[in-house]
Protein backbone atom coordinates (compact mmCIF):
# COMPACT_ATOMS: atom_id res chain seq x y z
CA UNK A 1 0.00 0.00 0.00
CA UNK A 2 1.05 3.57 -0.59
CA UNK A 3 1.69 5.81 2.41
CA UNK A 4 2.46 8.98 0.46
CA UNK A 5 1.60 9.81 -3.14
CA UNK A 6 2.82 13.05 -4.71
CA UNK A 7 1.62 13.87 -8.21
CA UNK A 8 3.16 16.64 -10.32
CA UNK A 9 3.72 19.03 -7.43
CA UNK A 10 5.17 22.47 -8.02
CA UNK A 11 5.97 25.34 -5.72
CA UNK A 12 6.26 28.97 -6.73
CA UNK A 13 7.02 31.97 -4.57
CA UNK A 14 6.13 35.03 -6.65
CA UNK A 15 7.84 34.67 -10.00
CA UNK A 16 10.40 32.19 -8.64
CA UNK A 17 9.72 28.49 -9.16
CA UNK A 18 11.42 26.42 -6.47
CA UNK A 19 10.61 23.09 -8.14
CA UNK A 20 8.08 21.73 -10.57
CA UNK A 21 6.52 18.42 -11.60
CA UNK A 22 7.79 16.48 -8.60
CA UNK A 23 6.09 13.07 -8.42
CA UNK A 24 6.87 10.05 -6.27
CA UNK A 25 5.28 7.40 -4.10
CA UNK A 26 6.34 6.13 -0.70
CA UNK A 27 5.29 2.57 0.12
CA UNK A 28 4.26 1.55 3.61
CA UNK A 29 7.09 0.30 5.85
CA UNK A 30 9.64 2.06 3.69
CA UNK A 31 12.36 4.53 4.61
CA UNK A 32 12.19 7.15 1.88
CA UNK A 33 14.77 9.89 1.74
CA UNK A 34 14.45 13.27 0.03
CA UNK A 35 17.92 14.51 -0.72
CA UNK A 36 19.61 17.26 -2.63
CA UNK A 37 21.91 20.24 -2.25
CA UNK A 38 21.15 23.34 -0.23
CA UNK A 39 18.34 25.49 -1.62
CA UNK A 40 16.83 22.78 -3.85
CA UNK A 41 13.50 22.80 -2.01
CA UNK A 42 13.77 19.74 0.24
CA UNK A 43 12.28 21.46 3.26
CA UNK A 44 9.65 23.17 1.08
CA UNK A 45 8.59 19.77 -0.21
CA UNK A 46 8.52 18.45 3.35
CA UNK A 47 6.29 21.37 4.40
CA UNK A 48 3.93 20.46 1.57
CA UNK A 49 3.83 16.82 2.70
CA UNK A 50 3.01 17.64 6.31
CA UNK A 51 0.28 20.06 5.27
CA UNK A 52 1.95 23.33 6.25
CA UNK A 53 2.30 24.68 2.71
CA UNK A 54 -0.26 24.11 -0.04
CA UNK A 55 1.55 23.35 -3.30
CA UNK A 56 1.11 25.83 -6.16
CA UNK A 57 0.09 22.89 -8.35
CA UNK A 58 -0.28 19.14 -8.00
CA UNK A 59 -1.88 16.66 -5.64
CA UNK A 60 -0.62 15.06 -2.43
CA UNK A 61 -2.17 12.07 -0.70
CA UNK A 62 -0.89 10.98 2.72
CA UNK A 63 -2.15 7.82 4.47
CA UNK A 64 -5.17 7.81 2.18
CA UNK A 65 -6.08 11.47 2.85
CA UNK A 66 -5.91 13.94 -0.02
CA UNK A 67 -4.44 17.06 1.58
CA UNK A 68 -4.44 19.39 -1.42
CA UNK A 69 -7.16 21.14 -3.39
CA UNK A 70 -10.46 22.61 -2.25
CA UNK A 71 -11.30 19.60 -0.04
CA UNK A 72 -7.78 19.41 1.37
CA UNK A 73 -8.46 21.05 4.76
CA UNK A 74 -10.36 18.06 6.17
CA UNK A 75 -7.76 15.66 4.76
CA UNK A 76 -4.93 17.70 6.28
CA UNK A 77 -6.60 17.67 9.68
CA UNK A 78 -7.20 13.92 9.60
CA UNK A 79 -3.69 13.24 8.30
CA UNK A 80 -1.99 15.43 10.92
CA UNK A 81 -3.51 13.32 13.71
CA UNK A 82 -1.82 10.24 12.27
CA UNK A 83 1.69 11.47 11.56
CA UNK A 84 4.69 12.52 13.61
CA UNK A 85 7.00 15.32 12.53
CA UNK A 86 10.46 16.13 13.74
CA UNK A 87 11.52 19.64 12.77
CA UNK A 88 15.11 20.54 12.06
CA UNK A 89 15.61 22.51 15.28
CA UNK A 90 13.58 20.08 17.38
CA UNK A 91 10.88 22.77 17.84
CA UNK A 92 10.54 21.89 21.52
CA UNK A 93 8.34 24.02 23.73
CA UNK A 94 10.74 26.20 25.71
CA UNK A 95 8.60 26.46 28.81
CA UNK A 96 8.42 22.68 29.39
CA UNK A 97 10.98 20.06 30.39
CA UNK A 98 11.87 17.39 27.84
CA UNK A 99 9.60 14.92 29.64
CA UNK A 100 6.69 17.37 29.58
CA UNK A 101 7.31 18.01 25.88
CA UNK A 102 6.81 14.30 25.15
CA UNK A 103 3.90 13.99 27.57
CA UNK A 104 1.97 16.83 25.94
CA UNK A 105 0.59 14.90 22.92
CA UNK A 106 -0.07 11.88 25.18
CA UNK A 107 -2.06 14.10 27.53
CA UNK A 108 -4.02 15.79 24.75
CA UNK A 109 -4.72 12.81 22.54
CA UNK A 110 -4.90 9.68 24.72
CA UNK A 111 -6.61 8.52 27.90
CA UNK A 112 -3.33 7.55 29.59
CA UNK A 113 -3.29 8.40 33.31
CA UNK A 114 -0.50 10.76 34.46
CA UNK A 115 1.80 7.94 35.60
CA UNK A 116 1.20 6.15 32.28
CA UNK A 117 2.04 9.28 30.30
CA UNK A 118 5.23 9.65 32.26
CA UNK A 119 6.22 5.99 31.79
CA UNK A 120 5.59 6.13 28.03
CA UNK A 121 7.43 9.46 27.71
CA UNK A 122 10.41 8.07 29.64
CA UNK A 123 10.57 5.09 27.28
CA UNK A 124 10.49 7.40 24.24
CA UNK A 125 13.25 9.59 25.65
CA UNK A 126 15.24 6.50 26.64
CA UNK A 127 14.97 5.24 23.07
CA UNK A 128 16.71 8.32 21.71
CA UNK A 129 19.33 8.21 24.46
CA UNK A 130 17.91 11.01 26.57
CA UNK A 131 16.70 8.99 29.55
CA UNK A 132 19.08 10.93 31.76
CA UNK A 133 17.87 14.33 30.58
CA UNK A 134 14.14 14.16 31.25
CA UNK A 135 14.12 17.05 33.71
CA UNK A 136 16.14 19.44 31.55
CA UNK A 137 14.63 22.44 29.78
CA UNK A 138 15.17 22.79 26.01
CA UNK A 139 17.36 25.83 26.64
CA UNK A 140 19.73 23.68 28.71
CA UNK A 141 20.52 21.07 26.04
CA UNK A 142 22.62 20.99 22.90
CA UNK A 143 21.29 21.15 19.35
CA UNK A 144 21.82 17.43 18.83
CA UNK A 145 19.94 16.59 22.02
CA UNK A 146 17.11 18.91 20.99
CA UNK A 147 16.86 17.10 17.67
CA UNK A 148 16.72 13.70 19.40
CA UNK A 149 14.07 15.01 21.81
CA UNK A 150 12.17 16.24 18.75
CA UNK A 151 12.23 12.69 17.36
CA UNK A 152 11.00 11.32 20.70
CA UNK A 153 8.10 13.79 20.62
CA UNK A 154 7.29 12.87 17.02
CA UNK A 155 7.16 9.21 18.14
CA UNK A 156 5.07 9.96 21.22
CA UNK A 157 1.92 8.38 19.77
CA UNK A 158 3.74 5.73 17.69
CA UNK A 159 2.31 7.13 14.44
CA UNK A 160 2.46 4.91 11.35
CA UNK A 161 4.26 7.65 9.38
CA UNK A 162 7.13 9.80 10.62
CA UNK A 163 8.60 12.82 8.84
CA UNK A 164 12.11 13.70 9.93
CA UNK A 165 13.82 16.90 8.80
CA UNK A 166 17.61 16.56 8.96
CA UNK A 167 17.58 14.11 11.93
CA UNK A 168 21.31 13.47 12.05
CA UNK A 169 22.66 16.89 11.15
CA UNK A 170 25.16 17.99 13.77
CA UNK A 171 25.18 14.67 15.63
CA UNK A 172 28.37 12.78 16.37
CA UNK A 173 28.88 9.64 14.24
CA UNK A 174 28.00 7.23 17.06
CA UNK A 175 24.74 8.97 17.98
CA UNK A 176 23.95 9.31 14.30
CA UNK A 177 24.48 5.57 13.77
CA UNK A 178 22.30 4.81 16.81
CA UNK A 179 19.58 7.00 15.35
CA UNK A 180 19.84 5.23 11.99
CA UNK A 181 19.49 1.89 13.79
CA UNK A 182 16.45 3.16 15.70
CA UNK A 183 14.79 4.18 12.41
CA UNK A 184 15.43 0.76 10.89
CA UNK A 185 14.27 -1.06 14.05
CA UNK A 186 11.04 0.92 14.18
CA UNK A 187 10.44 0.19 10.52
CA UNK A 188 11.09 -3.52 11.01
CA UNK A 189 9.31 -4.03 14.33
CA UNK A 190 6.41 -1.61 14.08
CA UNK A 191 6.14 -1.18 10.34
CA UNK A 192 6.61 2.57 10.67
CA UNK A 193 7.06 4.44 7.39
CA UNK A 194 9.69 7.17 7.33
CA UNK A 195 10.09 10.17 5.06
CA UNK A 196 13.45 11.69 5.85
CA UNK A 197 14.96 14.89 4.51
CA UNK A 198 18.71 14.76 4.81
CA UNK A 199 21.97 15.19 3.00
CA UNK A 200 24.08 13.13 5.38
CA UNK A 201 25.57 10.65 2.95
CA UNK A 202 26.39 7.94 5.51
CA UNK A 203 22.90 8.10 6.92
CA UNK A 204 21.27 7.97 3.48
CA UNK A 205 23.21 4.85 2.51
CA UNK A 206 22.47 3.23 5.87
CA UNK A 207 18.72 3.75 6.08
CA UNK A 208 17.17 4.60 2.73
CA UNK A 209 15.16 1.97 0.86
CA UNK A 210 14.51 4.51 -1.86
CA UNK A 211 15.17 8.17 -2.40
CA UNK A 212 14.58 11.06 -4.73
CA UNK A 213 17.15 13.67 -5.44
CA UNK A 214 16.11 17.26 -6.08
CA UNK A 215 18.26 19.78 -7.87
CA UNK A 216 17.61 23.49 -8.22
CA UNK A 217 18.79 23.42 -11.84
CA UNK A 218 16.78 20.40 -12.99
CA UNK A 219 15.00 22.63 -15.51
CA UNK A 220 16.37 25.78 -17.12
CA UNK A 221 13.92 27.88 -15.12
CA UNK A 222 13.18 25.72 -12.08
CA UNK A 223 14.28 22.96 -9.76
CA UNK A 224 12.91 19.43 -9.81
CA UNK A 225 13.67 15.74 -9.50
CA UNK A 226 16.86 14.52 -11.15
CA UNK A 227 16.97 10.95 -9.81
CA UNK A 228 14.83 8.39 -8.04
CA UNK A 229 15.63 4.92 -6.78
CA UNK A 230 17.79 2.99 -4.36
CA UNK A 231 20.64 5.23 -3.16
CA UNK A 232 23.30 2.54 -3.54
CA UNK A 233 22.21 1.92 -7.12
CA UNK A 234 22.21 5.63 -7.83
CA UNK A 235 25.67 5.96 -6.33
CA UNK A 236 27.08 3.19 -8.49
CA UNK A 237 25.16 3.58 -11.71
CA UNK A 238 23.55 6.98 -12.18
CA UNK A 239 25.06 9.09 -14.91
CA UNK A 240 23.63 12.50 -14.00
CA UNK A 241 26.58 14.69 -13.08
CA UNK A 242 24.92 16.14 -9.98
CA UNK A 243 23.93 12.71 -8.66
CA UNK A 244 27.44 11.43 -9.26
CA UNK A 245 28.96 14.48 -7.61
CA UNK A 246 26.66 14.18 -4.61
CA UNK A 247 27.35 10.53 -3.90
CA UNK A 248 31.06 10.72 -4.65
CA UNK A 249 31.56 14.07 -2.91
CA UNK A 250 32.96 15.61 -6.08
CA UNK A 251 32.76 19.17 -7.32
CA UNK A 252 30.50 19.03 -10.39
CA UNK A 253 31.99 20.17 -13.66
CA UNK A 254 30.24 23.33 -14.87
CA UNK A 255 29.81 23.22 -18.63
CA UNK A 256 30.70 26.45 -20.43
CA UNK A 257 27.66 28.34 -21.71
Amino acid sequence: MTAVRVTKCSQRFGSRTIFRDVSFEVAEKEVFVILGGSGCGKSTLMNQLIGLLPPSEGEIEVLGHVITGPEGAAGRHAMQRRIGVMFQSGALFGSMTLLENIMLPLEMLTDLPPEGREAVARVKLGLVGLGHATALMPAEISGGMARRAGIARAMALDPPLLFLDEPSAGLDPITSAELDKLILDLRDDLGTTFVVVTHELASILAIADRCIMLDRNAYPDAGGTIAEGNPRTLRDEDTHKMVRAFFRREIPQIEPV
Binding site: A119, R122, V123, K124, L125, G126, L127, G131, H132, A133, T134, A135, L136, D185, D189, L190
Partner: peptide, 22 residues
Protein backbone atom coordinates in the same frame (compact mmCIF):
# COMPACT_ATOMS: atom_id res chain seq x y z
CA UNK B 1 9.41 -11.92 17.95
CA UNK B 2 8.33 -8.33 17.11
CA UNK B 3 6.67 -7.90 20.49
CA UNK B 4 9.67 -9.39 22.26
CA UNK B 5 11.99 -7.04 20.39
CA UNK B 6 9.77 -4.11 21.25
CA UNK B 7 9.68 -5.12 24.92
CA UNK B 8 13.43 -5.53 25.03
CA UNK B 9 13.97 -2.12 23.47
CA UNK B 10 11.50 -0.48 25.84
CA UNK B 11 13.12 -2.24 28.81
CA UNK B 12 16.52 -0.86 27.89
CA UNK B 13 15.07 2.61 27.33
CA UNK B 14 13.15 2.55 30.61
CA UNK B 15 16.14 1.21 32.52
CA UNK B 16 17.94 4.55 32.38
CA UNK B 17 17.60 5.83 35.92
CA UNK B 18 15.66 9.04 36.09
CA UNK B 19 17.87 11.97 36.92
CA UNK B 20 18.39 12.73 40.56
CA UNK B 21 16.27 15.59 41.75
CA UNK B 22 17.98 18.77 40.76
Amino acid sequence: PQTEAMLERARVAAAVPPPAAK
